[in-house]
């Protein structure tokens, strides 16, 4: 009995630690969807770029990946803002399929370029390892660190969106772009900023992933699916929903992995997604579309 409880606690703790990272990644995806009704299929590639920033800086200077965040965040912000301004902004009012095709194309180009430049070799950033015990639950130090940083960044993004002038302007643009224009808000700028912030969050997630998992050009794909699962659970366009969805996904994934193999854990996630889409297609906290 005692050990069952401990096992359950272990699963929940591992899942929540994982969930923090998913929240950071999915927050950006949901922000972009909210502000410009675009599902960015290249979001995972932004994570990959953030991971490479950490790897390359570590290889060149031995830089600690937490410090590398100070580079990956602004670099990915600029990458995202420029991509939005010159590429994605053209499809903002186009049918969803057009933007899906465009961002899927972008993801292929970015992955292919990364393979050409950095090869398909797996890399990693050696950083803190090990863990400690909290009662009967063991906690991994690097995962706890990634979790804490993820929560801080997700919280900072949330505060930005709800408290600052441009943050509110981005939410206004999300809710009604025409009325936002009538308020004097430059909606192109709001959208560029939103995409930049979303990319910066994905880049930060990538930098954190660099010391947890292998880094390679196609790593974004699996994470993209996780982020997608999070927003299906939490509701597209809802930031608090993303946080809750991410935690649920993390715990379910950890539980399924404990009870079975990783492959089956993945399958459990998809079954859960399907069930969610059938039962509550707008997610736990999302609102039904129009």
């Amino acid at each position: 009995m005692g050990t069952d409880l401990a096992t359950a606690a272990q699963v929940v703790v591992s899942g929540l630690l994982l969930g923090g990272l998913y929240a950071l990644l999915a927050g950006g995806l949901t922000l972009v969807f909210g502000v410009m009704r675009v599902i960015n299929l290249a979001h995972g590639e932004l994570l990959m770029l953030g991971a490479y920033v950490a790897c390359l800086l570590f290889a060149a200077t031995g830089l600690n990946p937490i410090v590398a965040l100070l580079v990956s965040i602004p670099v990915l912000f600029v990458v995202g803002a420029v991509t939005q301004r010159f590429v994605v902004n053209r499809v903002v009012n186009a049918p969803l399929l057009t933007s899906l095709l465009l961002t899927y194309g972008l993801s292929l180009v970015v992955t292919g370029t990364a393979q050409a430049v950095w090869t398909n070799d797996y890399r990693s950033v050696p950083f803190i390892t090990g863990g400690f015990a909290l009662g009967e639950v063991s906690i991994s130090r690097p995962r706890l660190l990634a979790f804490a940083v993820s929560l801080v960044l997700t919280g900072a993004a949330h505060v930005f969106l709800t408290r600052t002038r441009w943050g509110k302007a981005m939410r206004a643009t999300a809710q009604n772009a025409d009325v936002a224009l009538a308020c004097g808000i430059d909606i192109d700028r709001a959208r560029m900023l939103a995409f930049g912030i979303a990319s910066a969050l994905a880049g930060a997630a990538g930098t954190l992933v660099s010391f947890l998992y292998s880094v390679y050009p196609e790593m974004g794909r699996a994470f993209m699916l996780k982020a997608f699962a999070v927003i299906v659970l939490g509701g597209l366009g809802s930031f608090p929903g993303a946080l809750i969805g991410a935690m649920i996904l993390g715990v379910v994934e950890a539980g399924a992995a404990y009870l079975s193999t990783t492959q089956i854990a993945e399958a459990v996630i998809y079954i859960m997604l399907l069930a969610m889409l059938l039962v509550r297609p707008h997610g736990l906290l999302g609102t039904a579309e129009r």
């Binding site: 939410r171 206004a172 009604n176 025409d178 009325v179 009538a182």
Partner: peptide
């Protein structure tokens, strides 16, 4: 604009 448009979630 026509239609009493507001930012509903604000």
């Amino acid at each position: 604009p026509q239609g009493r448009l507001v930012f509903a979630q604000m």
